[in-house]
């Protein structure tokens, strides 16, 4: 056994982009790999759940968990990893705020399963087969994890020490987080997001081009206009969420001439990212007339998907109202 600090990675409800982000560290990854022992990383390293179960509590220095919590298996795994780790990090927007999978909280489980297994045009499922929690044939049984009604953030399931924000976290942010952990000194208080605590405008190259008063009579979507590469995107009528979004990404999207969509989430002082983002955008609408305001705001299709794109489960709303939001039932089947 090496005496290098042990590190684990785990993947919950997410797209896999966060795993890519680690690979994106490029040659930096080699330094990290040299400095630590990766004891668990299902996507890249061979290892079994039983290996973790066999470890002492706190044996792992740090576990990076990406993805939101959607299934019973994910919940079990994060509890296990929590127990075995000194430091647990929420890695990426989904673990941090619920992320894109968290938008499922607009619906209930049945609606989601129905869509996925029955009603999309590409689905052919005449027998209406649905996944089962357990299936037995010839005395052999297999099981599948249960599927919760509600998507949760990592810190709604277990105690989280630090958060590495972003969809996906950018190399500078990951590098900073890993560096801080390995050096072990000057660690911020638990619960801290490992990124600057101001909004993105602070580091945006276009900041000084924003007029003191922006008045929008028509919102534009990026594919509808030729975007000026120097001028503040809000001033061009694009929904840029930089004012509400934590800095630290190096304004990568804006550098690529695309507005900020808010993946770093809010600053520590904001309790509902979407509410603040919506307020910032709505306050730019140039009208006092209710009907006209409605018309202008209709230029933002899918407001939940725009303002709560990464943060619906972490928001004050959390999800669309329902009676038993945390029920785990066997998905319906024949």
């Amino acid at each position: 056994m090496s005496d290098k600090p042990k590190v684990a990675f785990y993947w919950c409800a997410s797209c896999g982009g966060c795993e890519e982000a680690i690979v994106d560290l490029a040659e930096q990854l080699l330094d990290v790999a040299a400095a630590v022992e990766i004891v668990f990383w299902p996507v890249a390293v061979d290892g079994k759940r039983s290996d973790i179960e066999a470890m002492e509590d706190g044996e792992i220095l740090a576990t990076f968990i990406n993805g939101a919590i959607r299934t019973t298996e994910q919940e079990e795994m994060v509890h296990l990893l929590r127990q075995k780790s000194q430091v647990l990090l929420a890695f990426g927007s989904c673990a941090h705020l619920g992320g894109i999978p968290g938008l499922a909280n607009q619906f209930d489980r049945e609606t989601i399963l129905e869509t996925v297994f029955d009603s999309t045009p590409s689905t052919v499922n005449p027998e209406k087969v649905r996944p089962q929690l357990e299936f037995t044939e010839n005395g052999h049984s297999v099981d599948l994890p249960g599927f919760y009604e509600t998507v949760r953030t990592l810190d709604q399931v277990t105690e989280v020490d630090y958060i590495v924000p972003g969809c996906a976290p950018t190399p500078n942010i990951i590098g900073g987080a890993v560096g801080a952990l390995l050096s072990g000194d000057d660690l911020p208080p638990a619960g801290t997001v490992l990124a600057p605590d101001t909004a993105l405008c602070d580091e945006c190259g276009r900041k000084e081009t924003k007029p003191e008063v922006v008045a929008i009579s028509e919102w534009k979507r990026p594919h509808e206009v030729l975007i000026d590469e120097d001028l503040c995107l809000l001033a061009q009528g694009l929904v840029c969420l930089g004012p509400a979004t934590r800095a630290g990404c190096g304004s990568l999207c804006i550098g690529a001439n695309m507005p900020c969509s808010g993946c770093f989430g809010p600053t520590s002082r904001v309790r509902d990212y979407g509410g603040k983002a919506l307020g910032a955008i709505a306050s730019l609408v140039d009208s006092d007339d209710e009907a006209e305001i409605d018309k202008i705001l209709a230029g933002i299709p899918d407001p939940v998907g725009t303002f709560y794109r990464y943060s619906l489960p972490a928001s004050r709303l959390r999800r669309a109202p329902m009676e038993r939001p945390l029920e785990v039932a066997a998905p319906k089947g024949e």
């Binding site: 605590d197 101001t198 602070d202 003191e212 922006v214 930089g242 600053t267 910032a280």
Partner: peptide
Amino acid sequence: EEECSGCKTCVGLCPFSAIGYDEG
């Protein structure tokens, strides 16, 4: 001050013109 990003959202909203913007 150290938290302000200088996004100017507040400047135009003040009904009493009490908000200024200076050096970011």
